[in-house]
Design a protein around this nucleic acid. Sequence first.
RNA 1: GUGGAUGUAGCUCAGUAGGUAGAGCACCUGGUUGUGGUCCAGGAUGUCGCGGGUUCAAGUCCCGUCAUUCACCCCA
Length: 425
Amino acid sequence: MSTFKAPKGTYDLIPPRSAEYLAVREAFAAPLRRAGYGYVETPGFENVELFARGVGESTDIVTKEMYTLTTKGGDELALRPEGTASVLRGALENNLHKAGNLPVKLWYSGSYYRYERPQKGRYRHFSQVGAEAIGTEDPYLDAELIILARDSYRSLGLRNFRILLNSLGDANCRPAYRALLQEHLRGLDLDEDTRRRIDINPLRVLDDKREAVQRQLTGAPLMADHLCAECKAYHERVRELLTAAGVDFEDDPKLVRGLDYYTRTTFEFVHDGLGSQSAVGGGGRYDGLSEMIGGPALPSVGWALGVDRTVLALEAEGVDLQLPAVTQVFGVPLGEEATGELFGLITRLRRDGVAADLAFGGKGLKNAMKSANRSGARYALILGERDLAEGVVQLKELETGGQESVALDRVVAEVQAKLGSLPTR
RNA sequence: GUGGAUGUAGCUCAGUAGGUAGAGCACCUGGUUGUGGUCCAGGAUGUCGCGGGUUCAAGUCCCGUCAUUCACCCCA
């Protein structure tokens, strides 16, 4: 053990678990690519102001959870706590919205940072895959994204998740509702902390998980009952489209997002295998964000899915991701000359697309065979001086123990023929 | 920021009135000088988180500290 440990709230992703992360990421990414989303990668840090204005001055993320730093040149930066603000900033900066092809559809994958007390499913360094459809107001887009996320989860084998759906209204109807809600909340018997939140972000009070608070909230006015005609129609359309696509969802009139930029459609994918954390993914429409960060009006919608949390949810459900074997063929050399020959064979197999490895370090046969076994390979190629003299190599199927001699110049073709007729896992 | 729990071998954990540190799994060697996974025999491994205190004696009791973890809060 070294004197150093991974910082609080972080952990190393190591085999074999790391393979699950890659598989989860790919399960999110592949459908996005097929749906016309292009990959975007933005810096790991941005000007603090981008998040302050984008995410919201009053949110916990900005007020106490950001890793901020001042550079030697005096710039105020922050490690990114979420992806949407950065991606939108990048799209605007590169004039993607002016290419005359709206919406701009982008997906991303990366690490995010929040300074929080760690607990199950909540780390200071976490991983998300996200998607954004920028510049178009169309309920089909909202539905498309929800369907893509839902299908990704299901393709991984996740079953016990629910989709919560709500509308937060827009610039026309939300201010009036907000004032109404504030007035109502001020009349309730709430603790001091909660009372403070009434002024800052009254909608988030609705999302409080404490039972005592929830009891007080029965009878509170709900956004759903105060949507303007346009928002109501839009929301209805999204609901219809989801139903038509066979997506089960629950209307949750108290679902609120922690970030200020959301408008209209809001949704969350929740799973109960994450301890006290419940969201494996979430997102919604953010029609005003572009203007908030100094851009033109670009109504947009997007989501972010937690990779760490999805892996936890899969583990909680006992889902076994059927990952391909890391190694298909393992070389067991005996002696210096055989090692050279076998290394050549293994290299050829690799160049032909076979997952191949061999025993290094001049191990004895017994240990090399043990390594072969541990590699998970289906076949071992055993080569010693005796074989070399005969111009053959021993091809052994590890599971059955069956072994045959194959001519050295035929072994690559032979292995490929055998693997080709078998599933690669 | 607040509260609870836990720190003993690589891993999971036991350790019983305070009396020289254990198990299972994993690992290594041999049985098998060219065959793994099974079996048999043998073997190695610890600053008992760290610091202090009580005691003839502390993994065990007390104080402090650090770390981990769960929950509140918040969120993906």
